[in-house]
Simulated assay, not measured.
Amino acid sequence: MFFPYDSAALTPQAQVQLEPLGRALQERALRAHRFLIGGHTDAAGEPGYNRKLSLARARAVRAHLIEVYGIAPERLLTYGWGQSRPKDPVRPLSGLNRRVEVALVAPQAWLSPEHQRTLMGTPARWLAKETACSDQGLYDPRRLAVLDLDDFAAAPTALPCQSW
């Protein structure tokens, strides 16, 4: 969903766009899973301000999903990327860049033996960071190209137990 310039307020249109997501997150099949809500901005303004604005956008979506659809807060992680990951890099001031995107953060138990073997080939710095999260069972599946879940076209997600 997209946001007006310099705003983190959910528009009526954004609330309508959130309905299918909210309903899906209520489904039994998804109840045990966590999701990353990532906020973004266009390139207007200072990077520090845009980072805060993008986080406010992600938090607004999270709050809406919790309040309207009763989604458990611990299932929804937020992060603000500011202007660093534009959807339309050719037009950095485009409204397409003012958005929030949602991605699945899968527990390691989801990984097939093949994917687990792929993880063993992960660069040491990533593996060390993942080990710090092992007690929480979190793993960002976007590190494995075969899963192709990177709808942010971004680097791996920093999990709550990590500091990159």
Score class of each variant (00 low, 15 high):
Thr157Ile: 15
Leu65His: 06
Phe152Met: 09
Ser84Pro: 07
Ile71Glu: 01
Ile37Pro: 11
Gly95Cys: 03
Pro156Leu: 02
Val146Phe: 01
Ala14His: 03
Val100Leu: 00
Val100Gly: 01
Gly70Trp: 08
Arg31Thr: 15
Glu19Ile: 13
Glu67Thr: 15
Val146Lys: 00
Pro89Ser: 05
Ala43Gln: 08
Ala124Trp: 00
Gln13Leu: 11
Gly137Glu: 00
Asp42Thr: 09
Arg23Gln: 14
Leu159Trp: 06
Lys87Val: 10
His33Trp: 11
Met1Arg: 05
Gly82Trp: 04
Trp110Glu: 00
Leu53Cys: 11
Trp126Ile: 02
Phe152Gly: 15
Pro160Ser: 09
Gly82Arg: 01
Leu138Phe: 07
Gln15Gly: 10
His40Pro: 11
Ala158Cys: 12
Ser7Lys: 01
Glu101Val: 13
Leu30Arg: 04
Arg143Asn: 05
Arg57Pro: 11
Pro107Glu: 00
Arg31Trp: 04
Ser163Glu: 09
Ala145His: 08
Pro156Asn: 03
Leu25Tyr: 07
Val68Tyr: 08
Val146Tyr: 00
Pro20Gly: 11
Gly45Lys: 04
Val146Gln: 02
Pro20Lys: 08
Phe2Gly: 08
Trp110Pro: 00
His115Trp: 08
Tyr79Ile: 13
Glu19Cys: 06
Arg143Val: 01
Asp42Trp: 05
Asp150Pro: 07
Ala109Arg: 14
Ala60Thr: 02
Leu93Ala: 13
Gln26Lys: 15
Ala9Lys: 14
Arg85Trp: 12
Ala132Gln: 11
Gly80Cys: 07
Asp140Thr: 01
Pro86Cys: 06
Pro123Arg: 03
Thr131Pro: 04
Ala43Pro: 11
Gln13His: 11
Arg28Lys: 15
Arg99Pro: 07
Val68His: 13
Ala145Thr: 03
Ser163Cys: 05
Tyr5Ile: 05
Gln162Pro: 15
Glu19Asn: 10
Leu119Lys: 00
Arg75Met: 03
Ala8Arg: 06
Leu77Met: 14
Arg23Gly: 09
Val102Tyr: 01
Trp126Arg: 05
Gln15Pro: 10
Pro107Ser: 01
Tyr49Thr: 15
Asn97His: 07
Asp148Ser: 15
Arg143Gln: 12
Cys133Ile: 06
Trp164Pro: 15
Cys133Tyr: 11
Trp81Gln: 06
His115Ser: 14
Ala32Ile: 03
